[in-house]
C-alpha cells in the first residue's frame, strides 16, 4: 500500500497545474524512489516526465509498485479543495480503485478527506536515452517564459541557436520577424538571475512555440529553467524542484 505525506499541498498542486494542459490521463507510478510520471501528448510531439522523490515527503511508504491511473482534470478538482499550506496525505491500497487524499490545515482544526476514482491506463513507456547535449543553457524561468510568449505572437515556430556568444531565439511570421539574444551572464550576486551556457558544439534547431508556451506553465516550480539542445534530437526543458523535477521533451521541426 501507499502512504505519502507532503508538508505543503502546493507542491502537488503546482505540478498538476503545470502538466494538466499537455496530458489528460496518466499513471502516477509509485515506487520506492517516490512518485513518477511519464506521458506524451496526443500527437506524440511532447513528453512530460515528473519525479517527486521520496526525500520530498514528510512520510513515504510504498510496499510495492502501484500505478495510480488518474485523470488530471479530476485530480485538479480535488486539489482545489487543498490550501497551499495544508499537509496532504495520499493513501492507496495495492491494485487500488481509488486514491485517498487528506488535507489538514496548519491550525489542525480542519481535516478534508477525498477519494478520487482511478482509471486503468495502459500507457506505453518510452525509453529516453541518456544524451550528451551540444548545448546546455540555464536561465531565469520567467525570462524564458517571456521570450516564448513574445515570439509566439509573431510566429508558430522559433529557431533556437546556441553559440559561445549566447543563445538566440528568432522567428519570422506574417507580420514580420523578431529575435532575442541572451548573452552569457553568470550574475555572481544572484545566480538564479544569470544566464549560463555550456557549449560542446554550436546547435541550431526549430521548435513549435505553442508547446514551449505550454511548458512554461511550469515556471512556478523553479526560478530557473535548464534548456538542453543537440542537433536533430528532442529539446529537453527541465524545471528542478527541491526534491524532484518536471522535464519536458519536444521533438524538433525539421525544415527544408
Amino acid at each position: 500500500m501507499l502512504e505519502a505525506r507532503l508538508e505543503q499541498s502546493s507542491v502537488l498542486k503546482k505540478v498538476v497545474d503545470a502538466i494538466k494542459d499537455l496530458v489528460q490521463d496518466c499513471n502516477f507510478d509509485c515506487n520506492d524512489s517516490g512518485i513518477q510520471l511519464q506521458a506524451m501528448d496526443n500527437s506524440h510531439v511532447a513528453l512530460v516526465a515528473m519525479h517527486l522523490k521520496t526525500e520530498g515527503f514528510a512520510l513515504y511508504r510504498c510496499d510495492r509498485n502501484i500505478a495510480l491511473g488518474i485523470n488530471l482534470v479530476s485530480l485538479q478538482k480535488v486539489l482545489r479543495a487543498a490550501q497551499n499550506e495544508d499537509v496532504m496525505t495520499l493513501k492507496a491500497e495495492d491494485s487500488p480503485d481509488a486514491l485517498s487524499l487528506v488535507f489538514e490545515n496548519s491550525e489542525n482544526d480542519r481535516i478534508s478527506e477525498y477519494d478520487l476514482k482511478l482509471m486503468d491506463i495502459d500507457q506505453e513507456h518510452l525509453g529516453i536515452p541518456e544524451t550528451e547535449y551540444g548545448a546546455t543553457v540555464k536561465m531565469p524561468s520567467a525570462e524564458f517564459q517571456r521570450i516564448c510568449r513574445d515570439l509566439s505572437l509573431l510566429s508558430e515556430s522559433v529557431a533556437i541557436e546556441a553559440t559561445k556568444e549566447g543563445i538566440k531565439f528568432s522567428c519570422t511570421g506574417d507580420i514580420g520577424k523578431g529575435a532575442v539574444t541572451l548573452r552569457q551572464n553568470p550574475n555572481v550576486e544572484k545566480p538564479e538571475l544569470g544566464t549560463t551556457i555550456e557549449l560542446q558544439e554550436p546547435v541550431a534547431l526549430t521548435f513549435s512555440l505553442k508547446y514551449l508556451v505550454n511548458f512554461c506553465k511550469a515556471s512556478g516550480l523553479s526560478n530557473t529553467v535548464t534548456i538542453s539542445l543537440s542537433n536533430e534530437v528532442p529539446l529537453l526543458i527541465e524545471y528542478e524542484m527541491e526534491h524532484g523535477y518536471v522535464r519536458f521533451y519536444l521533438a524538433p521541426k525539421i525544415g527544408d
Binding site: H44, A46, L47, L126, V233, A251, I254
Partner: peptide
Amino acid sequence: EHGQETLDAFFGSL
C-alpha cells in the same frame, strides 16, 4: 512551414 517530427522517431517504446 517546417515539418513537425514526433518523439517516436527518437525515443523507442519500452
